[in-house]
Amino acid sequence: MRSSWSEPFLWIHLAGLAVVPLFLGLCWVFLAVGDPQLPVWVEFLLVAGIGIAPILWMQLTRPFYIFSILVLAIKPSHLTSDQQRLLSLFKTPIHQWLASVGAILMLLVLWQIYQVAPLATIVGFPLTSRFLGLFLASLAFLASNLFLQVPLSVLLVLLTNETKLAATEPFPIVKIFQDFTVPGLQVNRILPIADKKLAVVNNDTPQITPKQG
């Protein structure tokens, strides 16, 4: 088994793919609200710009700091050398290429959703403002892009072979805040898994009793 597969943060963020259809569904519903007030291409570019541009820019310039969950992030100083190596993989050109491909894919998906938006009209839906609907659709589409782009980059790391990972230089701790988007509050640890592993290692390590003189 590849060592990267034992990193729980990678699997947690890969699971984010599961909510992409949910947010796309919300985007579809909100796009059906009200009657169009702007030209089709204006509405489409508005939702696409808000939903795609921020996430794509983040992944191209300062990728998402993977050692975080919701509003908590592990302090860079508490990362292991293996975790720093994983961070280095997120800064490779192939990740930028994959982020661009993901953005194009989502643009095509949005166009399909926009075209069939009237089918999602809900009778008696409390929201009637077209502009508010477009705004909420943009936020839902933004969330869908976030939960697609981050797992795509994680998947690429999980597929990295052990030889390449071992040859990767640990990412410098002092540059993490500069080169990654670190969300939320920094803490010493989030998951107890690492502590349990350390405990197992300590228990399995043979104890050497000094000879009595």
Rank of each mutant, 00 (worst) to 15 (best):
V19E: 00
P76A: 15
M1P: 03
L142C: 08
P54I: 05
F147R: 01
L132Q: 06
W41Y: 07
L60V: 13
I113W: 05
L26V: 10
I208M: 11
K196P: 00
T163I: 12
A166Q: 14
S6H: 06
K75T: 15
F177P: 00
L159V: 06
F125I: 14
S81M: 02
I52Y: 04
T209W: 12
V154E: 09
L86S: 07
S4F: 00
W11F: 10
W28F: 11
V29G: 01
F30H: 04
L152P: 01
K91N: 09
W5H: 02
P206Y: 04
A53Y: 07
P192Q: 00
Q149M: 13
K196N: 04
L136R: 01
I193Q: 03
L107E: 09
P206V: 09
E169A: 11
V201R: 13
V200S: 10
D179A: 12
A32R: 08
T80K: 01
G34E: 04
L134V: 01
D82H: 06
P151R: 01
F177D: 14
D179M: 13
I113R: 01
Q96I: 03
P36I: 07
R130V: 03
L119F: 02
P93C: 14
N202C: 03
D204M: 05
A167R: 12
F180S: 04
T163D: 11
T121L: 12
N188C: 07
T128H: 10
T168L: 14
D82E: 11
T128Q: 12
S3I: 02
D204K: 03
C27E: 14
Q212D: 12
M1I: 04
L56G: 03
T80E: 10
H95Y: 09
L17A: 06
N188Q: 05
C27I: 04
S138P: 00
K211N: 00
L185R: 13
T209I: 15
H13Q: 12
E7L: 00
A120K: 03
T92M: 14
W28V: 03
P54G: 03
R2A: 11
L24N: 07
A194I: 02
Q115D: 10
F67S: 03
V174I: 12
S153E: 03
Q115I: 05
L79N: 07
L127Y: 01
V123G: 07
E7F: 00
L105M: 08
V116L: 09
L22K: 10
T160S: 11
V71W: 08
R62N: 03
K196W: 11
K91C: 10
P8N: 02
Q186R: 15
I190Y: 04
L56V: 06
N203S: 07
Y114G: 02
V187S: 12
L136A: 08
L89V: 13
V174Q: 14
G133M: 08
W28N: 01
P36L: 10
L191K: 02
V116Q: 05
P170G: 06
T168Q: 14
F180I: 13
D204G: 01
Q207G: 05
P210L: 15
F135W: 06
R62Q: 06
P118N: 06
L158F: 06
I122V: 15
L87Q: 02
A73T: 13
F180N: 05
L56P: 00
K175T: 09
M58N: 04
L14N: 09
